[in-house]
Amino acid sequence: MIEVKNIHFWYPDGTNALCDVSLEIQDGEFIALIGQNGSGKTTFAKCIAGILKPTKGEILIDGKNLKNFRRKEIAEKIGYVFQNPDHQLFSNTCEKEISSGPRNLKLPLKEIKRRVEIASEIAGVDRKLFNKHPFFLSKGLRQRVAIASILSMQPKAIIVDEPTTGQDFKQSISVMEFLKKLNQQKHTILIITHEMHIVAKYAKRVVLFKDGKILQDASTKEVFEKRDSLAKARVKPPQITIFSRRVLNKTFLTCEEFLVKRKLEVRSQKLENPPLYSPLLKKGGNRGDYKN
């Protein structure tokens, strides 16, 4: 569990990036941090990962103050994937890059090898690339190598800053699907993103930032329902959410939800006022089947 208590952060140039922010994150959550550029999302995430030290306030991880952790211990608790993979890649082959974390943790060789294999498989980094220099790979692949190099440390919580920037739709989905898989294996996942359809599809909880403060913290649906606070933070919900509100007066988050729930609604409306010869009822229609 991560507890953030009243943290403030001032950058050396005087910018106040975080102002009295508190948040509690339970194990196994899938959270999206959203808000405009400069709203404090990344600074907040970097504080949790121990990359930046809050100017004021404290952060507890599993009850222990982050200040009292050694670097190595933090790495086992929280992994941070930078927005720009080039900010974290430093080795001259992909294999060295992915194994650098476990090597620093001084794990036995056999374990290092095992972890590199697992991590690169989940992240979709082909063995053929192991001897290549990361800088000659495409941006999408470099991002996967960056993620694999964090996964190989098997941290309990993983923070990914903009996992889908510059990726096309299929690549975005494959990155998100594997974060979902990790989440199902009880890893806590925190993503920072501007892609609202990704938030709608994957995150269960959304934290909305505005000017260094938390403006909203609720389930994804609740946050996307509150039009005024979204407008205040200048965030637009997914197109389908705006659409479903306009045409059905309902908040649906994804196309799938729209299609499924709309069908159910049409059916239940029909059942409440059944036409004389309803084909649904003729089939021996059991009213109970169409509720919800």
Partner: peptide, 10 residues
């Protein structure tokens, strides 16, 4: 292959 506008998908 490409993420089409959600209204088109629906």
């Amino acid at each position: 292959q490409i993420y089409m506008p959600e209204v088109s998908q629906v």
